[in-house]
């Protein structure tokens, strides 16, 4: 009982609605302020490349403020306990850049399966080898799409 509560509570973050709304509004405020430096003026008095960004950013800011006010009493819960999966996707991303796609996918599958509490070694071995092999067959042999390689394949 005690252990369950500890695990359940670990990593849970509760944020009030007003904070979520204000955070979104802040992002759009920054974007609006960046428009003059990040969007080059093009031809056209009104019909230039800045019309749409200004329109969208200001609308979004107003809506986000409305969101903050309407949902200020609501609370939203985020589970930070998902970090092993975020880490897995980043491992795959950086692993592909250095080691190559196939090697790092073997590693990442094994890692994810361990995280999902698989302890049967032959299942892990089989899945982590068969998946890249079938991807190779389908993508490279079948459709001539080459996956990125690093120092390994």
């Amino acid at each position: 009982m005690e252990k369950k509560d500890r695990i359940k509570l670990k990593g849970l973050v509760t944020v009030p609605g007003i904070a979520v709304g204000l955070a979104i509004a802040a992002v759009y405020l920054v974007l609006t302020l960046l428009i003059p430096s990040q969007v080059r003026m093009t031809q056209g008095h009104l019909t230039n490349a800045r019309l749409y960004p200004y329109f969208v950013c200001i609308c979004a800011m107003l809506l986000a403020l409305g969101f903050a006010l309407t949902f200020r009493k609501n609370e939203f819960t985020f589970d930070l306990g998902i970090w092993p999966m975020v880490l897995a996707s980043l491992m795959l991303y950086f692993g592909t850049k250095t080691l190559g796609f196939y090697t790092s996918s073997v590693i990442v599958i094994a890692y994810m399966m361990l995280m999902w509490n698989n302890r049967c070694w032959w299942k892990i071995l089989l899945t982590s080898v068969l998946t890249p092999v079938s991807i190779y067959l389908a993508f490279t042999v079948g459709m001539r799409i080459f996956m990125p390689t690093g120092i390994l394949i």
Binding site: L87, M91, F94, T98, I107, A110, Y111, M115
Partner: peptide, 24 residues
């Protein structure tokens, strides 16, 4: 247990990068 697994896998990924330079 979880942390050990994470550490192990990160190590496997990072180690080869050290050798990556200069091998080409």
């Amino acid at each position: 247990m979880k942390k050990v697994i994470v550490a192990l896998f990160l190590l496997v990924l990072v180690l080869p990068c050290a050798f990556a330079q200069g091998s080409k």
